[in-house]
Simulated assay, not measured.
Amino acid sequence: MWSWVLHRITGVLTFFFLFVHVLDTALVRVSPDTYNEVIETYKTPLVNLMEVGLVGAVLFHALNGIRVMLVDFWSKGTKYQKHMLWTIAVVWVLVMIPGAIAMMWRTVSVMFGGGE
């Protein structure tokens, strides 16, 4: 049940990100200066942390979507659905740990005096 709830939540989060992304990209046509200001606000540690969360949400949503398709369309899907859930959890962790480190590296280095 929790994977169902997380799948819905990550889907909504991804939708809202795409909505904001389309709006801020459209700003370049309306006012390039305003667009540049908005893009500058995205270069903060908080937004960087939110980007890591977004990647985690999209990755879980994609992996769980594959699991849902296998459960629905594979004759043995329901038998192995719990195993597949643990598999996607392990894959998610294995991808997210180095991914989060790579995404946060610049922010951490700037915060602790490493510069740009």
Rank of each mutant, 00 (worst) to 15 (best):
V12W: 11
T25W: 14
L54F: 14
N64L: 06
L23Q: 07
V30W: 14
Y80K: 08
L54C: 02
L6Y: 07
T34D: 08
A62D: 03
K43V: 06
V22I: 15
L54I: 04
L6C: 09
L27M: 15
A57C: 13
E40T: 12
Y35W: 15
R67F: 06
G77L: 05
L94S: 03
I101S: 02
G56A: 13
S109P: 01
V71K: 06
G99A: 01
F19Q: 04
S31H: 12
I39V: 15
R106C: 05
K82E: 09
W86K: 08
T87I: 01
Q81W: 05
H61V: 03
V30I: 14
V22S: 04
W2S: 08
V93F: 12
P98L: 10
V38G: 02
F19S: 11
F73Y: 15
L59A: 14
R106E: 14
L6H: 08
A26C: 09
Y80G: 00
A62N: 00
Y42W: 10
T107E: 10
K43N: 10
L46D: 00
L13H: 00
V38R: 03
F17L: 07
G99T: 10
K76Y: 11
A62Y: 06
V12Y: 10
V58W: 05
F15P: 04
F112Y: 15
G115T: 06
V55I: 11
S31M: 02
V95E: 00
I101N: 06
D33P: 01
A62W: 04
G99F: 06
G99P: 00
L13Q: 05
F73V: 11
D72I: 01
V108R: 10
G114R: 04
M1P: 07
Y80S: 02
F17Q: 04
T78E: 15
V93G: 05
L23D: 07
F17Y: 15
I97V: 15
T14A: 13
S109H: 14
M1L: 08
F19I: 07
L18S: 09
V22G: 04
R8F: 08
P45W: 04
V91R: 05
L49S: 13
L27N: 09
Y42L: 14
P45Q: 11
V55W: 03
L54K: 04
T107R: 08
H83C: 04
R106N: 10
F73P: 03
W2R: 07
V22T: 09
T25I: 09
L54S: 08
Y80E: 04
G115Q: 12
T44I: 08
I9L: 08
L63N: 08
L59V: 12
V52W: 02
A57G: 06
V28A: 13
L46F: 14
N64Y: 07
V20S: 09
